[in-house]
Design a protein around this nucleic acid. Structure first.
Lengths: 218, 218
DNA sequence: ATATTTTTTTAGATTAATCTAAAAATTGCT
DNA sequence: AGCAATTTTTAGATTAATCTAAAAAAATAT
């Protein structure tokens, strides 16, 4: 079983490897964990010995199959607890990270299962990030046009219906890309336009034409 | 701020001092924490230096004012989480201790507050133990005759209305005393008798006469 | 009341996670 | 390619929590 510290390293390495694609560097891990590279070297050896990461001296690290599975379980717990804190305890979405960092280390798979059920099997957390399922898989729901999403919903941009270049340029201009998290703030029923919130917290208006062509996942 | 280990020692010392009244011995602490007396001696010194316990070599320990306050906060969290696990996640009352042992160490007073509110400010946990309030005080509610309690409620025996010796002997015979935790399983409206569950999990029948004279606290 | 037993403390090690300082390897620049 | 800068690793310490073994104090029993 992994210690608290080992879990934090594994999660950090997983996140970095998602962001970077390439091998994760010792310094990068030290940076995100606010620790020294020497400490990272030590921990890397341990996680490698235990088979959670692949590692060659001076070549950086990558999560193994086993490590990815473990990391996704921690991320699953983190995000489920965030849903709990926001949906049930009325925390604001920007107040929950630190508490979820603690709760994610609670060990009990039955607890996670029951919590998931209690929350109604949510697929995204309050920040719009997807919640891995029990097997560690990220099952994103069916894609729907943004225009069909109800007010108040948080969604993830997962595709476009009409991928012509003019449309993509427009999306780029208004700072929307695949993976962008959006909150539907207001819908105007008479013309189908809507006001949405971007991760930068900026509010922008979107025409029905754009909303029809933007595919999102709840 | 106390470490995980320090919190566990403090809680154990608090519980032992409640049970024993006298000074808590090194061996007793080692016993309940499944550790060695030498380790206890070390930790005792640390907790004493930090002012959480009163300690004189070879004389045993006792919680200080500061220590009691801290211990009660931990116990409060433990018992609130137990209520959450049983009432919201549908755990059985005998399955929750280990998980609550982990959850009690989560640091966030706002979380505790909001959890308390979410649970409807419960005053006893699923085992019938009282939940200290925010200031660390154990506020037991008004005493009411057992006969007025609704089906399904868990209550604590806190007094008798008619303290004649025949009644007390009867209570003794059916294994009920002050502090006994009772669950009301079934009430028969036509004669006011009821079926209750004792801590031993045994079910017994009680007449209206007994239920009227047994004072309990929710 | 003194000798034996039990309890508690101390001394010295161990393990996990961290650090600083120095050495080694890699990268990158001209 | 060769030297400088950067990154990574190693070596050696430190702190917290634990342990074993031995010493010291307290309790107990005849």
């Amino acid at each position: 079983m992994l210690s608290h510290a080992e879990e934090n390293y594994l999660k950090a390495i997983y996140h970095l490897s998602q962001a970077d694609k390439s091998d994760v560097s010792t310094n990068a891990i030290a940076e995100v964990l606010q620790t020294k590279p020497a400490s990272v070297s030590d921990m890397i050896k341990k996680l490698s010995d235990k088979g959670f990461i692949h590692y060659q001296k001076y070549k950086g690290v990558n999560v193994s199959q086993k490590g990815r599975k473990e990391a996704l379980q921690i991320i699953r717990k983190h995000r489920l607890w965030e849903v709990f804190l926001v949906d049930k305890l009325q925390f604001k979405w920007d107040e929950v990270h630190e508490i979820a960092e603690q709760l994610e280390h609670i060990k009990s798979s039955i607890l996670t299962q029951k919590l998931d059920k209690f929350l109604g099997y949510p697929r995204i957390d309050p920040h719009g990030d997807p919640i891995p399922d029990e097997r560690g898989e990220i099952v994103l729901g069916k894609k729907s046009p943004l225009s069909e999403i109800f007010e108040g919903k948080k969604v993830l941009v997962t595709g476009v219906d009409d991928s012509d270049s003019e449309f993509l340029t427009h999306l780029d201009k208004i700072n929307i890309a695949l993976g962008t998290k959006i909150v539907v703030k207001e819908k105007n029923s008479f013309d189908g336009s809507m006001q949405i919130e971007l991760p930068s917290q900026k509010l922008i208006f979107i025409s029905k034409q754009v909303a029809d062509n933007l595919l999102v996942t709840e």
